[in-house]
Simulated scan of single mutants.
Amino acid sequence: MNPDQLLRLAGALLGWPLHQGRAQQVALVPLLPDGSSRRFFRLQRAEQKVIAILPPENDPAGLVEARAFARIGRHLRECGAPTPALLAFDDQTGLALCEDLGAHRLYEEVQLRGLDAALPFYAQAVHALARIQVRGAQGFDPDWCWDTPVYDRQLMLERESGYFLRACCTDLLQLDFDGEAVGAECRHLAEAASQAPARFFLHRDFQSRNIMISNGAVRFIDFQGGRLGPLAYDLASLLIDPYVGLNAAAQEHLLATYLQALGREINYDHEQFEREYLLLALQRNLQILGAFAFLSRVKQKPFFAQFLVPALDSLRGLLAKPGAAGYAGLNHLCQLCRRKLEHL
């Protein structure tokens, strides 16, 4: 779809006046995505601004993902989630037209004003997260999902620990390690983590660059990978987010804040949650390392390479906890990765 076709379709969907088949006096500004292959644009007509999102050209999977974005987005809005309003959606092309939330994310808030100034927004985020995890699961249709309908053991092994071993340890760093021993630990970790009840709404990329700040309130984006899953995963995604590097005190404070918010929604044993949190934080940390290695090496996006060391330091910290004592092979591999990165 070229710019003229995009403007014509967007204008028709939004009811904007057309001139010679094209929306009148509309500025079209391409936006740079993070790791996504989707295409983003800002459309501005007079004082009205709209974000247009298109799947990649000639990509059937991208079209399915776009439809998941629309269906899950509508559901979350109906549940009261702080997501952008979906103004229009074209099922044939996958064009989504959304409320423009600006360009200020939680990530920028920390960079510009510091963690202390950002903590109230983090508190907002974890309060809203607890609500949508519980309420968003009610009436959620797994058929909306474009990837998998549930976060489970197989996904952990293929897309998280397996991703780390393949994309980071082998492809990027070319390490020589005991794959059989480490693989056995990854299977043990996935088996333990998969015992957490997976009946809640899971965003699966809940981190500072996917939380906008608009008019003093947090808003959540990039929820198209949503599915059913365990509670602790999204919280771990936010608290160990290497883009920011929250200190231990902030993480503990926000975990306690989250548990208070969760308690207003459901009864969930706090000790059980904290056991599940460590296991799922380990899983998420492995996924982060695999993704950042892949994006920096294969997708040629050097922005992500700078966060590999912070992500490895986070993984080392998690593996040092008493509840992770059974993962000596992963701990050793993590140290090998850290040393190799220092010499790249």
Results as ranks from 00 to 15, higher is better:
D178F: 08
Y277Q: 05
S37Q: 11
L318A: 05
E160T: 13
G245F: 08
A196D: 08
A137W: 00
A52Q: 08
Q260I: 13
L289Q: 04
R204M: 07
L239D: 00
D269T: 09
G102F: 10
G179Q: 14
L231G: 00
Q207E: 04
L172Y: 13
L341F: 10
S36K: 06
Y163R: 13
E265M: 02
W144E: 01
L9W: 11
D241G: 02
V298L: 07
Q283G: 04
R22N: 09
C186V: 10
G323L: 02
R264V: 15
A81H: 03
A103Y: 05
L32C: 11
Y243H: 11
L189D: 09
Y243W: 14
R113M: 06
L13N: 06
P60I: 08
L255V: 15
L235W: 01
S208C: 04
L286F: 10
I72P: 00
L278C: 01
R219F: 15
F292G: 06
A27N: 08
T148E: 10
A311V: 12
A137G: 10
Q283S: 07
V150H: 12
A250N: 03
A125W: 05
K301M: 02
E185Y: 10
A184R: 12
D171K: 14
A325Y: 10
W146A: 14
S36M: 07
C334W: 03
P56N: 08
A61I: 03
A217M: 09
I53V: 14
E180W: 11
A256P: 00
P310A: 12
Q154K: 11
Q24W: 10
L101A: 03
G323P: 01
L18G: 03
F223N: 01
A281C: 02
D4C: 14
G226P: 02
P310V: 14
A23P: 03
K321C: 03
I240N: 06
R153W: 09
R67W: 14
L76A: 02
I72W: 03
G317Y: 05
P230N: 05
L189P: 07
C169S: 15
P56K: 15
Q25F: 15
W144T: 09
L259F: 04
H104Q: 07
G226R: 03
R105V: 09
L43P: 06
F140D: 03
L13I: 12
A27P: 02
G11A: 06
A128M: 04
Q124S: 02
L87F: 11
L6W: 05
R204N: 03
C334I: 09
P230S: 07
L87Y: 09
G216I: 10
L95T: 12
